[in-house]
Design a binder for these strands. Structure first.
Lengths: 220, 220
DNA sequence: TAGATTGTTAATCGATTAACAATC
DNA sequence: TAGATTGTTAATCGATTAACAATC
């Protein structure tokens, strides 16, 4: 089938494409140049039919009887995921967490280039101990424009998150990864994804405290 | 309806219960003692019927015509989520990210009490600059037993994550929150949840690079 | 050709939602 | 009582999966 356009696919598909991409990178590094959906599925704990279905939303990448060419599929997924370019990124909030995010090498490797951290605390501004510079929030608007920032990670306390979001959007940042535990209100045209770490731990606590006294079950 | 037992519910429900809990805490703090599913839904961007359905899996908490008693529902959700106790927790990997996790006050507030960080790097061990002590991996087994550790956060590089997981499970830790970008293999009886931060940024990149040349759409 | 593995379909499974009787 | 809002049902919507014809 020719590459499909305007075709809809399930939301979880994009996340799985990321997993496929990473697994293929690993295979490529190990000198493997062909892989079947079955082998890839075993590696990732994902059903082979799921993998074939996910890929088929975007094109015909395999060869019947042969599987997928690792390097070719990598190139295609890189294009689909938008990883064939650099994404100028900033981090708002230079606390423990923001600093960790700014220096995480996994982001850089994928083209997410953190240009600076921002904070309202003057003591944090200008710090030389980190590779990524820390600037004052007063300089945010100017910096975004001059460096054509497209993506921001919000690592500020809950109380400041909405205000920061508004400021980012006003300055044309339209990709936001939010770590503050709050549902941000925003214009539909921007891409905002929230990661709520406390909620994850709470889910674990739920499952662990599940006992004879609490017999609720979850589906499947 | 009396509290239902052995009733199954959708997987996303638990995560939403966390959001309800947090929103109710906020209402309680502001002195509001009754809330309708509609008001709660507006606050959280969740449909009121979804909220009522989620809650109904666990019991009858509301009063028709009146809504929900905030304090009562908080107490019930605290019990359901297992937040009515302390969870002795450790962090494996004392890098930027692990240190940030160990010191995040939001976890402590919910009963996730981080007792120590562990690392193989002797330079990091014994550091006094942090409130949470850093110990050497050699002391892990003993520490887990002596402190009855139940939950661990894995903040080590991808290459070490599986080995660490095996060691944790062998020592009886059965709640794991994994931040290494790898699908951990483990016994079905433990509760393991992975958070893949790179994948989240990649999803944003996908949506942002969506353009005239790339007309794939997602459902809804 | 025979064997392998794709791409696609149709069936199944799971989750959300609107609607409304019940009832405070 | 009249109005409000729950708890629950049934319908709809979305996602996964097994199965298999197509084809390398």
């Amino acid at each position: 089938m020719a590459r499909r356009e305007k075709y809809k696919f399930p939301k979880p598909t994009i996340e799985r494409l990321s997993y496929y991409f990473r697994a293929l990178e690993d295979l490529s590094k190990r000198g493997i140049d062909t892989v079947s959906s079955d082998a890839l599925g075993t590696k990732l704990n994902i059903k082979s039919s799921q993998i074939r279905r996910d890929l088929s939303y975007f094109g015909d990448f395999g060869k019947r009887g042969m599987g997928y060419d690792v390097k070719f599929l990598l190139k295609e997924l890189r294009y689909i995921l938008g990883l064939d370019r650099e994404w100028p990124t900033i981090v708002i909030g230079a606390g423990n967490f923001g600093t960790a995010m700014a220096h995480y090498s996994g982001f850089k490797k994928r083209g997410f280039d953190v240009k600076a951290m921002f904070d309202i605390d003057k003591d944090k501004v200008g710090s030389k101990e980190n590779k990524v510079p820390t600037l004052h929030m007063n300089d945010l608007d100017k910096f975004i424009k001059e460096n054509k920032i497209e993506i921001a990670m919000i690592c500020v306390p809950e109380t400041a998150a909405q205000e920061v979001t508004d400021q980012l959007i006003k300055n044309g940042v339209n990709g936001i990864l939010n770590f503050a535990p709050i549902a941000l209100k925003h214009d539909k045209e921007i891409r905002c994804l929230s990661v709520d770490l406390t909620t994850k731990l709470e889910a674990i606590a739920y499952y662990m405290s599940y006992s004879k006294d609490k017999l609720w079950k979850i589906f499947s």
